[in-house]
Design a protein around this nucleic acid. Sequence first.
DNA 1: ATTTTTTAGTGATTTTTTTCACTTATTATA
DNA 2: TATAATAAGTGAAAAAAATCACTAAAAAAT
Lengths: 204, 204
Amino acid sequence: MNNTIERICKIYGYLAVQEQSGADFISSKELAEAIGTTEYTVRKDFSVLDIKGYTRKGYEVKSLKEKLGVKFRLNKERRACIVGLGRLGTALLDYEHFQNDGFEIIAGFDSSINKIERIQTKIDVFPVGALAEVVSSRGIELGIITVPAKAAQEIADVLIRAGVKGILNFSPVKLNVPKDIVRLDMDFTNALRFIAAKFVIQNK
Amino acid sequence: MNNTIERICKIYGYLAVQEQSGADFISSKELAEAIGTTEYTVRKDFSVLDIKGYTRKGYEVKSLKEKLGVKFRLNKERRACIVGLGRLGTALLDYEHFQNDGFEIIAGFDSSINKIERIQTKIDVFPVGALAEVVSSRGIELGIITVPAKAAQEIADVLIRAGVKGILNFSPVKLNVPKDIVRLDMDFTNALRFIAAKFVIQNK
DNA sequence: ATTTTTTAGTGATTTTTTTCACTTATTATA
DNA sequence: TATAATAAGTGAAAAAAATCACTAAAAAAT
Ligand SMILES: NC(=O)c1ccc[n+]([C@@H]2O[C@H](COP(=O)([O-])OP(=O)(O)OC[C@H]3O[C@@H](n4cnc5c(N)ncnc54)[C@H](O)[C@@H]3O)[C@@H](O)[C@H]2O)c1
Ligand SMILES: NC(=O)c1ccc[n+]([C@@H]2O[C@H](COP(=O)([O-])OP(=O)(O)OC[C@H]3O[C@@H](n4cnc5c(N)ncnc54)[C@H](O)[C@@H]3O)[C@@H](O)[C@H]2O)c1
């Protein structure tokens, strides 16, 4: 199931691009190539999701995107916030792509008043003390954590208590969250390790 | 196999922390908890890798880390470079953790001479024209791509021709690489999509 | 000295995921 | 109009991954 979700998310992104460039139909083969899987897997995913295509044409880009959008609620705008406005946090804060793709970063938080005052961005920034209040009052569903490792769990706890449903964690700690909260870790060091390790395995 | 590699990388990171804090032995259960899997899976992974523990004690932290380090060459320093010194690239450039964990960022590249001149960092920065030369002469094995989407494939091609073995790609495009090159995409938008989609699926 | 508890090790089983093999529909072509 | 080609749909098979169920060893407790 996770694999399917992951593929669907990639497909959804690819469809957005294709839609923009005016493509009408797209085959399972092209989708497979675009996201790095096989046409069988793409068709099986769609089969399970009860999504139909057209023989000899493929899937209609617009309606396919629409259907995936509805099934996985990728069509709906989601509000997010970033906690920890250091080097990584500020880079993310100004990353316009998120907004285009349906994720609206509507607030940033930091513990340093200094930083908050100096920061240059169109997005509202607050002291971290306001986190719980802002998250719940503004209906923020996603929390992005870019604070130092030692503060990450505490921030996660506040976010969850305030009502976020998912956490994207950039700090290199494994956060404890209740199992109805979706957590995803972006650990760059592990990513580099994975690349290095995979290379070693592949070549022996 | 990929799943095993991923788990081993996480375990390796956790072991580094445990070693630091002076732990001697660690059980499959603790490891499982730390990386988010089951004790069975951890033991099975080790069983396959022919790694032995001690009954009623667990695995010896130091020698386990050592063994994984050797098997997956995670003990060896790897040189890496960052191409694209914008908001994300500069954040990564100064991220000290990489060095601690055996990844030595030894060069940064950008197409803007202006940027290169203004940038403040201890790491050597070069115009992108020097990429191929620096990569091959300094034995850089890993390339980190943080250029805009439209330049990403071209940079990947140069990196590969110059001899990198793996690419960590932060741009939101699927790079084409020969299959002996390990590529890993860090697509933050997809990560947010995944969280949102998983949440929807979980709660219906 | 004996029993209990804990934890690894692993073959067998189960579950999940992927791939295959084949059918069907539709369009293009001869 | 007949034939060829293309691409979806899907049950079956295969492969991969995870879990279970058990044994064995060692330490701790009685
Ligand atoms: N910089 C990178 O390239 C990079 C790469 C991988 C992972 N990370 C991880 O991302 C996180 C942030 O990294 P960074 O380099 O941006 O660090 P940073 O030190 O530049 O920024 C951290 C920010 O968090 C703020 N902060 C600290 N405690 C806080 C709290 N309790 N509540 C709110 N804000 C708080 C600090 O004031 C600072 O602005 C770290 O966990 C780091 O390990 C960073
Ligand atoms: N900023 C973020 O938070 C964020 C988040 C997710 C993904 N990304 C992706 O990471 C990449 C970089 O994002 P960013 O926000 O840092 O962008 P940015 O515009 O701040 O930086 C891009 C840098 O690449 C340089 N560059 C452009 N073409 C180049 C080339 N051919 N060779 C070498 N350097 C070149 C530019 O001079 C600039 O310094 C983009 O692909 C973006 O989609 C960024």
